[in-house]
Structure formats: structure tokens, C-alpha cells
Simulated assay, not measured.
Amino acid sequence: MRSFIYYSLMLLLGFAWYKFGQKLLRKGYRDERGELTEGMVGPVGFLMCAGVACYLFFAMMRALIRGEVPCLGRGCQGVVYTLAANAGDYWANMFFMLWLVLGLGYALYVTYKIWFRL
């Protein structure tokens, strides 16, 4: 039951993130106060999000190829989950990394589209 609630909340948060990005994209070049519409992240945040997303994507590809993923929590540092021995924990960590990559990628996409509007 706990896993169901966890994944449901992750999907709900992803949906809210998507709706927020769509709301920003629907805004015009300027908002209601006459100021320029800003993206989800600024220039430094854009570079940081791009770096973290690339690192997580690389870690995800590495985990798919090697069949093992390190635990991503604070309470289990140093633990490595393998696909053969811990399939559930392996796929849970892979899903979490994929969710982070997609969320950061969407933030970068929305910011890029807002910055380069014509």
C-alpha cells in the first residue's frame, strides 16, 4: 500500500509540474503587470539543472547496462541494488531517476521556449 501511495504522489506531482509549465507557456510575452514572463529557472539554474539532468541520465544508462544501481536515499548510502537480487528496489530507484530526469528536462524545455519566443 505504501508503494502505491508513493507512486501515486509522484505521478500527481509530475502532473502538477506539467500543468504549471503549460500555464507559463500559455502566458504571453509579458504578464499582467507588464513584466517579461520568466521561465522556471534562471541562467545559473538552467546550467545547474542541465548538469544534474545529464548526470542522472548517465547514471540511469549506466545502471541499465550494468544491472545495478546505487541506493538514492540517505538511510541506505553505500547499498547497491542489483537487478538479479533486488529487482523491486532496482526498478524503484530507476523510476525515481527517470522521474527526476523528465522533471528537470521539462523545466529546461519550458525555460528554453520562453527565452527564445519569436
Rank of each mutant, 00 (worst) to 15 (best):
V44P: 00
G67M: 10
L47T: 02
E38R: 11
F46P: 01
E32K: 14
M40Y: 02
L13D: 06
L98M: 10
E38Y: 02
L108Y: 01
E68H: 03
G28D: 05
E38K: 14
L12P: 00
V110N: 04
L98G: 14
L64V: 06
A53D: 08
L83K: 14
V44K: 03
L13Q: 09
G105F: 02
Y29G: 13
G28T: 00
L36G: 06
V79R: 10
G28E: 03
E68K: 06
G103R: 00
L24G: 08
F58N: 15
I65Y: 09
Q22G: 10
N86L: 05
A107T: 05
M48Q: 07
P43H: 06
E38H: 05
M48N: 07
L104N: 02
L24K: 07
A85V: 03
L83W: 06
L36Q: 13
L56G: 03
F57Q: 11
G78P: 01
R117T: 04
V41Y: 00
F96Y: 10
L24M: 09
V52N: 07
Y90F: 07
G75L: 10
M97N: 07
L9K: 10
R30V: 14
G73M: 11
G78M: 06
D89P: 01
M1K: 11
Y55H: 09
L11N: 08
S3P: 05
A59G: 03
W17F: 12
M48G: 08
R26D: 15
R74S: 15
T37R: 12
S3Q: 14
C49L: 15
A63N: 04
P43C: 07
L25A: 06
G51H: 02
L9M: 05
M1E: 10
Y6L: 15
V69S: 06
N93Q: 11
V52T: 03
